[in-house]
Design a binder for these strands. Structure first.
Length: 897
RNA sequence: GGGCGGUUAGCUCAGAUGGUUAGAGCGUCUGCUUUACACGCAGAAGGCCGGGGGUUCGAGUCCCUCACCGCCCA
């Protein structure tokens, strides 16, 4: 691990260190929360991935963010728990296994329920640990000893307890109602599990003759003519003049020959089609509601298998629904009742899992009565209030409005699924007395009549019912004596993608409050979707997915994590490109090499004592970099507290690359060469603190460097922890702010930049030293003390420091870096005319600026209304500008003399 | 139909409570084996912050409006 400095590889090799480091962390028990009564516990539960899933970039993103937050809190000393878990993912997993069965030429019905469930468990045993291993490769510092599965005994008990409580309150009920049905999956779906897709279709205009006057008719428009077999009414808007006198009359339903009423309903859009809507309460949600309002009967013409039922009449009974569509259209055509057919683009609901067109139909299902947001005691009402009154903070804020909007339109949740994989609904029916009841523990006999002839409900619960309990079911609820529940509930943060705000986040809030009386978490942090370089959603069918494991291998884990979480704001989608990955990898390598330099430079020195806390450095450069470090420390902690991880990382990147590497290290080299030992301790200090600050985002490279570094420097009296991941997260020391060093170094750096600029402009080779003289104008000691740095970094030699009164021959170039004037002779390269022109242009710029600031300060409104410090800043600026102008004017006067 | 985003450098994106001359990465151009790093160093070019209106001493930032792109819900 610790090798001689000169054998540290020139490039950071992520693959060579990551596995070993992760193993060390885990073996050392760092992922398990450490008690600390004086600190607030921090807890995140991992959104449980599908148990048979494979890690994709969405997981990589969510894990990177959660791990960063977790590591930050852990380093801050908070008892920290990141609890991992997996979801049985009912319909998704069942679908995968059924597909495998289909390839073997069999199906679940041939197998039977028990054998099928066993088959799924085998599948879980085979693939269920894949994603855990993949999370470990990402560096996820979650406590694997607390790993939970939604079907584990604890969470299962939580599911049953919740169900029984709600059942006994009468909030879970069984009812026959119109629901979304997937004929292929043969199960009910919740509203959320239906995706709508725009498709090309037809709009059929069908004539329904009046019962008492077959010459007159009402024309209805529909995209689904097959459903007309189940029509039980026609609805028009009561104000629609075209249908005055029709409301209350009966029309004759073609083909079927049923008389159905024309009703008036204000929900009808007069502009759509003919303004007359055929009402099929059995197969359309809107129609179902219209039917309820007008007492229309329900006729089910489409069955669970997607074929027509006997109620569709002998001709169509048993026919597949889409075949029926064209057959019905043909028959209507023959009857002369098909007025016309138009092309029509409309959205069609399809099963989220298998893409089959969803059929709304009436079915006996279990529902959770969530109430409405206006009822403060209802489930929806309390979930609404929690966000309105700030018990839960949603980041970014705009998603709070989306959440509330959804709750304000919520309907009862259909929680039963006709699947075999999942939590079987804990209700038992009595074969003798017909009673049924919900039980936490399997009963032996009917609770009403005592008969042993009881049978459990066949349906299972919606997967989201169990994941909705996740923040408390994983911590031991409903066990009252659970320490974890006491410590870590409510969770601190729930971090997930905005795409499951309704599915999951809202359900957790509803069920968490219901079960515990408290919110499940204080904050919700929502991230965006990972898109490809073209901004397209990644999907297997599109073939544009990137495998995070490939990227890990190619760029390193830290680079992938950094690329995924930098340069993006909370809740915004992110395009991932190789550019970003390369840039992040280069950054890891940059730190690696900076560390390589520092380690080489300080190795074997005996003057490093106190490096860990150089509270009052003496040297200007040290005071400057430490002031910058402290400003960074404040900023990073603040940004993290606001969940602005991208900003925090941007600051770290800028500081490490620009301030530390490009300036401080380069200047420190000068001092080290000339025997000034004081730079060494600061180098170590700043590097070490930067590593700590960066560790939550780039855990591996920082650990590897840290180990290498601390092995070679004297340990502070207070000692050092064995790993950076349990080192203290830096907090700023306000005593170290150094505004004078900041402004002085600013002048020094500007001077160096100005000379470099001239060198580039006049093509002076890097190897060629330039003679220079600096008029110090009040900054004599600064220039003298920094003269070596200026000389080396700007490549000027000899460098003459002129006293304020001395004036130099203005031949050559004069650079005005207020208050300094740098004279570069540049004989033979720059003549008088060129220099006059250059200075003239500079003078114009300065004058323009000066005039603008003057104008601003002449504005009484500004001076009286702007904050005093803003006005003061402008005054300072004006002074600087006019000094600069005068200096340029003087030089120009000398030139023309 | 309702709601929410986005529109900033050639490309991809950051820009907290309004306050200098708006930033980064990549790309482009000029130089450079300067003994940590070419996954690098130095320098440079490139922006009426989508259009219009308003509030304000002051607007990329707040308000209104229009246009285009995208997402969610019905």
């Amino acid at each position: 691990m610790t090798q001689p400095a000169n054998t540290i590889p020139r490039a950071y090799d992520a693959g060579a260190v990551e596995e070993r480091i992760y193993q060390d962390w885990w073996d050392s028990g760092y992922f398990v929360p450490r008690a600390n009564p004086s600190r607030t516990p921090f807890c995140i539960v991992m959104p449980p991935p599908n148990v048979t899933g494979e890690l994709h970039l969405g997981h990589a993103l969510t894990a990177s963010l959660q791990d960063a937050l977790t590591r930050w809190h852990r380093m801050c000393g908070d008892p920290t728990l990141w609890l991992p878990g997996k979801d049985h993912a009912g319909i998704a997993t069942q679908w995968v296994v059924e597909r495998a069965l289909a390839e073997e030429g069999t199906n679940r019905h041939d197998l039977g329920r028990e054998a099928f469930e066993e088959r799924v468990w085998q599948w879980v045993d085979l693939y269920g640990n894949t994603i855990d291993a993949q999370h470990r490769r990402l560096g996820a510092s979650c406590d694997w000893s607390r790993l939970r599965f939604t079907l584990d005994q604890g969470p299962a008990r939580a599911v049953r307890t919740t169900f029984v409580n709600l059942f006994e309150k009468g909030l879970i009920y069984r009812h026959e109602r119109i629901i979304n049905w997937c004929p292929r999956c043969a199960t009910a779906l919740s509203d959320l599990e239906v995706d709508y897709e725009e498709r090309d279709g037809k709009l059929y205009y069908i004539r329904y003759p009046l019962a008492n006057n077959p010459d007159d008719f009402v024309t209805v428009a529909t995209t689904r003519p097959e459903s007309m077999l189940g029509d039980t009414g026609v609805a028009v808007h009561p104000d629609d003049e075209r249908y005055q006198g029709k409301v209350g009359q009966m029309v004759m339903l073609p083909i079927v020959g049923r008389e159905i009423p024309v009703v008036g309903d204000t929900a009808i859009e007069m502009e759509f089609g003919t303004g007359a809507l055929k009402v099929t309460p059995g197969h359309d949600v809107v129609d179902f509601e219209i039917g309820e309002r007008h007492g229309l009967p329900i006729v089910n013409v489409i069955g669970f298998d997607g074929c027509m039922t006997d109620a569709a009449g002998p001709r169509y009974s048993g026919m597949e629904r889409f075949a029926t569509r064209s057959a019905v259209a043909d028959e209507l055509e023959q009857l002369g009742l098909l007025e016309r057919v138009e092309d029509y683009h409309h959205s069609v609901g399809q099963c989220q899992r298998c893409s089959e067109v969803v059929e709304p139909l009436i079915s006996l299902q279990w529902f959770l009565n969530v109430g409405t947001h206006t009822k403060p005691d209802s489930i929806a009402g309390r979930a609404h209030a929690a966000v309105v009154n700030g018990d839960i903070e949603i980041v970014p804020e705009r998603f709070g409005r989306v959440y509330l909007n959804w709750l304000e339109n919520i309907r009862d949740w259909c929680v039963s699924r006709q699947l075999w994989w999942g939590h079987r609904i804990p209700v038992w029916y009595c074969g003798d007395c017909g009673a049924f009841a919900a039980h936490v523990d399997d009963p032996d006999a009917c609770a009403s009549c005592g008969s042993p002839n009881i049978e459990q409900e066949n349906d299972v619960l919606d997967t989201w019912f169990s994941s909705g309990l996740w923040p408390h079911s994983t911590l031991g609820w409903p066990d009252d004596a659970s320490d974890d529940l006491d410590h870590f509930y409510p969770n601190s943060v729930l971090e997930t993608g905005y795409d499951i705000l309704f599915f999951w986040v809202a359900r957790m809030i509803m069920l968490g409050i219901e079960n515990t009386g408290d919110v499940p978490f204080r904050s919700v942090y929502l991230h965006g979707m990972v898109l490809d370089a073209e901004g397209q959603k990644m999907s297997k069918t599109r073939g544009n997915t990137l495998d995070p494991l490939d990227l890990l291998a190619q760029y390193g884990t830290d680079a992938l994590r950094f690329a995924l979480t930098t340069g993006t704001a909370p809740g915004n989608n992110l395009r991932l490109s190789t550019d970003k990955l390369e840039s992040a990898r280069n950054f890891a390598n940059k730190i690696w090499n900076a560390a390589r330099f520092v380690i080489t430079a300080v190795e074997g020195r005996d003057d490093l004592a106190g490096w860990s806390d150089p509270i009052t450095p003496q040297h200007r450069e040290d005071r400057w970099i430490i002031g910058r470090l402290d400003a960074l420390t404040v900023a990073v902690n603040e940004r993290l507290a606001e969940f602005e991880l991208g900003e925090a990382q941007q600051r770290l990147y800028d500081f490490i690359w620009n301030d530390f590497c490009d300036w401080y290290i380069e200047m420190a080299k000068v001092r080290l060469r000339s025997g000034d030992a004081t730079a060494a301790a600061t180098l170590v200090h700043v590097l070490e603190r930067s590593l700590r600050l960066l560790h939550p985002f780039m855990p591996f490279v920082t650990e590897e460097i840290w180990q290498n570094l601390v092995a070679r420097v004297p340990a502070p009296a207070s000692g050092l922890p064995p790993s950076i991941m349990i080192a203290e997260y830096p907090q700023a020391d306000s005593m170290r702010a150094a505004p004078d060093a900041e402004s002085e170094m600013d002048v020094v750096m500007q001077t160096i930049r100005a000379v470099r600029n001239m060198r580039a402009q006049f093509r002076i080779p890097a190897g060629q030293k330039l003679e220079a003289a600096i008029e110090t104008n009040g900054m004599q000691s600064v220039v003298e003390q920094e003269s070596e740095a200026i000389s080396v970094l700007a490549r000027v030699e000899p460098l003459t420091v002129l006293h304020a009164a001395e004036s130099e021959n203005p031949a050559g170039v004069s650079l005005v870096v207020n208050p300094l004037v740098v004279r570069l002779p540049l004989t033979g390269i720059v003549d008088l005319d060129v220099e006059s022109q250059r200075l003239g242009k500079e003078l114009d710029d300065v004058r323009r600026n000066e005039a603008r600031v003057q104008q601003l300060l002449a504005n009484d409104n500004f001076v009286s209304k702007a904050r005093p410090e803003v006005v003061e800043k402008e005054r300072d600026r004006l002074q600087g500008l006019s000094e600069q102008r005068q200096r340029i004017e003087e030089i120009m006067a000398q030139l023309s003399a």
